[in-house]
Design a protein around this nucleic acid. Sequence first.
DNA 1: AATATATGGTCTATATACGGATCAATTTTA
DNA 2: TAAAATTGATCCGTATATAGACCATATATT
Lengths: 112, 112
Amino acid sequence: MPKSVTRTYSRYSRDAVSLLGALIREARKERRITTQELADRAGISRGLLQRIEKGNPKCEIGAVFEVATIVGVKLFDADESTLTNSLRQTRGKLALLPKSVRKKPKAVHDDF
Amino acid sequence: MPKSVTRTYSRYSRDAVSLLGALIREARKERRITTQELADRAGISRGLLQRIEKGNPKCEIGAVFEVATIVGVKLFDADESTLTNSLRQTRGKLALLPKSVRKKPKAVHDDF
DNA sequence: AATATATGGTCTATATACGGATCAATTTTA
DNA sequence: TAAAATTGATCCGTATATAGACCATATATT
């Protein structure tokens, strides 16, 4: 990616990533799993797991969700079946949405 | 990273990433924001936003959460204050946890 | 106590995710 | 209808996230 990538994150986003990492760490300890073992099970390196638990936002979301799943941290406060159902419903919903919903793309300023 | 990185994801993880992407896309359309505008606001490229909405697991979690936040997709079913509180509580909890909780790291096989 | 294990940090090499540009197809607006 | 805008998709160059090895410290076990 040309030019150095210096991304900024909103407070909420940073907190969300941090919280997820903290929850993972907590869950891992409660289950008495070492970082090495969890990393192995998730198919990632121990270093990456450390960054995840630390709340580093520059990690693959797939890797983070995988680790969370293994230690039992539920995303969206939903279990597997619920999640799958939501996904199906959402997809159907999207499919049924009108071709267009755009109307007036009025400029918006956001500052978190 | 030596050797090609071919990661596998559990069904649940893939569904979670896909759902999040679908929710973002839905929320963006409801708010009548173009992909370009949302990408600009999030400080990412349009291409990355497309991958996010598609549910590609190989995206920075920070970028995904940032986009979700902008369009109003709440993570953890919690608003900002709640999230911050959870984070504080979790951190305190972790700080108060006994130095060690590991005991018997018995081997476990997981297949999602 | 000594020994073993776990954690956290650093360093290097490389696979790759990213930004940016381009184009075709679709959709919206006039 | 035509024109404008949006979307989806490629391709390329490069910054960087990752794996893996290493080491020092901390914690656990005996």
